[in-house]
Design a protein around this nucleic acid. Structure first.
Lengths: 256, 256
DNA sequence: TGACTTATGTTCGCAATGCGAACATAAGTT
DNA sequence: AACTTATGTTCGCATTGCGAACATAAGTCA
């Protein structure tokens, strides 16, 4: 367990159990007890007890040999979604923007150094990875992340950037901290961010911040497309007004 | 803890921790330590340790007084979603059907006595509750649930129905077990289910099963609308073919 | 078919983990 | 100021959960 965990008041069994849940992914849909133990870095007997507990609670299923997650696990994430009124509010706007512009539209929030998708309307599969509610992407390399980072004070930004490990996803990816900061100043000035081919070649997106009634930025909304389909100029001329209209309406609803 | 939990090999700390996560909902977005303790049925000092552990792991945030779930909790549900290839596969078909028919379209699977939404495309808010990935509804009162139940053997169905507590959501809700079974025979015969105003007045939906290449039913897909907008006849004449086309295509993809 | 490897099932002594009663302090209300 | 409700914290203790070790099962290979 991470040494940053304060062992006083820290419950290792809970931490271990959550690690067991996270042992499952696309490449590990149905795995054996030993695989779970290895992936969760637990003793086999210990992993077994966790799997049996999760099975008793309905979060895991098993055929007696392999284990896989039960849809009940969605309830955990669901606890988060239904405790966030914004997810309900924005969904209809996301659908509306997506219909208007004919491209995928998403809303996300900042969590640490990443953006987390909380709402999404996809028109086509254009990314190599699938994006869903719950997907996390590095904030520094996404348009939604940049509008959220641009809102931070210098101090807050420094704290966040300390934890960022810049990755060069493509030849266009900004990896110089100062260059990023300059870009964020520009984003703040113009009130939107455009990211072209920094996270994945061939893709670009534009994002604007979503404000609540106290003028606090609570999320960001973007439209994502392919560079071959929409130029940066067209993003600002045709797409940006749709996003700006949407966030104006969202702010009204959030102000009720 | 439920007496059905086998205390041998059962890890109460994990169970308790998951209950803490589920203490949060729409009416309990940000709650105090004592409220968490009450809702999770824990001693206050115990609840405090769980909240501090969840905070250390990033699943919960706090202002020192109130606690709320962090979007990191979505990772837990996300572990399930990315371990289910079907969620990726069906999303584009859900979007397609929804676009074609101009109504909301969803996919769900059976989990115990409930259906769990795993994919959704909403055109309008027509239900009083919001439906998201993770939402659970009683299988017996939904079209998607009925196509999934219709696939069960008599024995399997009896096991499931034993655990069902029939609720009369509206005056149209079937609550007689035999009447439900008769309805399921009809569903099996015709290969689709229509539910009108049984879960909520004013709403109707039609669902068909999704098969994999072994002819096993793995999920169901529906279109939901308002009774004022689409008759049952129109559902079968216009909507059903779109759903049937979609499941044919889905089956091809699942067979790759 | 036997040897070997890899896997799971299970136990139980034990130590550490987590518990919760109790006390202290803080904040809000009357 | 008294009272109520809340949180912060401790620490003795009992139970919980651990994991080494052993048993058994299943698969592979020669």
């Amino acid at each position: 367990m991470s040494s940053s965990m304060n062992t006083k008041d820290f419950i290792t069994s809970l931490a271990r159990g959550l690690k067991v849940i996270q042992s499952f992914d696309k490449e590990h849909r149905k795995i054996s007890l030993s695989q779970v133990a290895a992936r969760a870095e637990l003793n086999r007997a210990t992993a077994r007890r966790f799997l049996f507990t999760l099975k008793a609670l309905g979060y895991v299923n098993s055929d007696g040999k392999l284990f896989w997650l039960s849809p009940k696990v969605l309830e955990l994430g669901y606890s988060y979604l239904i405790s966030q009124p914004i997810t309900d509010i924005v969904q209809s706007f996301v659908d509306q923007v997506s219909s208007q512009v004919g491209e995928s539209c998403s809303v996300s929030i900042l969590d640490g150094t990443e953006v987390v998708y909380i709402s999404r309307r996809m028109t086509k599969h254009i990314m190599s990875i699938s994006l869903n509610v719950g997907t996390r992407l590095p904030a520094v390399a996404t348009s939604m992340g940049r509008v959220l980072l641009a809102d931070k004070s210098i101090e807050e930004l420094n704290v966040i950037l300390e934890k960022v490990q810049f990755q060069k996803f493509t030849k266009h990816t900004l990896t110089d901290e100062q260059a990023l900061k300059d870009e964020l100043l520009k984003v703040r000035d113009q009130g939107y961010a455009i990211v072209s081919e920094e996270l994945e070649l061939g893709l670009r997106s534009i994002a604007v911040p979503i404000y609540n009634k106290y003028d606090q930025i609570v999320a960001s909304i973007n439209v994502g497309t392919q560079v071959a389909r929409i130029s940066e100029q067209e993003l600002t001329k045709r797409i940006l007004p749709c996003l700006q209209n949407a966030v104006t309406e969202i702010r009204k609803v959030l102000s009720v």
